[in-house]
Design a protein around this nucleic acid. Structure first.
Length: 278
DNA sequence: CTTACGGCCTGTACGC
DNA sequence: TGCGTACAGGCCGTAA
């Protein structure tokens, strides 16, 4: 269920445990996440030092010594746990697929009941050319993501803006929730055809996207001590959304008398206020 | 080329 | 309580 802010919060939780640490033991308990582990996956990771954890879109890239990158995607249900007791016997760890033990004795467990996540290895030199990474659009929290870029990316697109913003080639890291929130913040209707978004709306969208993502990351940092919950789970936090999953509630915008509506676009729920999103 | 849709898995919520 | 159904925040491959 993680989008950019959740992935970033997970990354921040992993940094103190993994960065600079050597992996002394790695177990890959099942090989069939969305993309099967490469051959000898656990062996190739054992003994490697994690030099740096990077986030790109919804991916975490663990830069290892010897010029390799461990690429991680959490899919819909991927979670990391640090230093907690997990037991397959009791069922609590039934979906624990990968375990990393560091030279400081920390144990990091990756759990993913739907198995839409993935882990794979790539050469550091493929950082920008790997097929999962090469088509990604700009990071929304950097200057690469500009009004000019957004307008160019939307040009000629016949799909609704909602679908366009979910397209990782347009902007990287947004998912269904934050697209709904950003469209609400910008006052733009999710049904508007992408190519018809005006310059003024594009400006508001760029600003709203940055704001909702930054606020969510900040909420993770302030809600969780060390980005970690009591049970050792990293990166997830209670966050209040203004439209997502609020069908039927009053619009929170001042002076707006509308109610939040739910529609289905491209098979996914969209929440918006017909009163103030145009 | 762009756009639309099925499929991958399992868990949970809800109506009857 | 049990059962069936719908739905879930992602992404890829394929077809149109």
């Amino acid at each position: 269920m993680p989008e950019l802010p959740e992935v970033e919060t997970v990354r921040l939780g992993l940094v103190p445990v993994l960065e600079g640490r050597k992996l002394v033991r790695v177990e890959a308990r099942r090989p069939d996440l969305r993309i099967a582990f490469p051959p000898r996956f656990a062996e190739r990771l054992t003994g490697r030092r994690v030099e740096r954890l990077e986030r790109r879109a919804k991916y975490i890239l663990a830069h290892l010594d010897r010029g390799e990158i461990l690429l991680i995607h959490l899919g819909m249900s991927g979670r990391f746990f640090v230093d907690m007791q997990r037991s397959n016997a009791t069922g609590s760890g039934a979906h624990d697929h990968v375990m990393f033990e560091t030279d400081r004795g920390a144990r990091v467990v990756y759990s993913d009941h739907r198995r839409f996540g993935l882990m794979t290895l790539l050469a550091a030199s493929d950082r920008d050319s790997h097929k999962l990474l090469k088509g990604l659009g700009p990071e929304p929290l950097t200057a690469d993501f500009s009004v000019a870029h957004l307008l160019a990316a939307l040009k000629g697109k016949r799909t609704p803006i909602k679908a366009a913003l979910l397209d990782q080639r347009v902007v990287a890291g947004l998912g269904n929730i934050y697209v709904c929130e950003a469209l609400f913040g910008a006052g733009v209707s999710p049904k508007r055809i992408a190519a018809k978004v005006t310059r003024d709306q594009a400006k508001r969208l760029v600003a709203a996207i940055r704001t909702v993502l930054k606020d969510a990351i900040a909420a993770g940092g302030s809600t969780l001590r060390d980005y970690r919950k009591a049970d050792g789970e990293l990166g997830y936090f209670q966050h209040k959304f203004r439209v997502y999953d609020r069908e039927g509630e009053r619009c929170s915008k001042r002076g707006c008398r509308g109610r939040i509506k739910r529609i289905v676009q491209a098979g996914r729920s969209t929440f918006f206020c017909p009163g103030c999103q145009r």
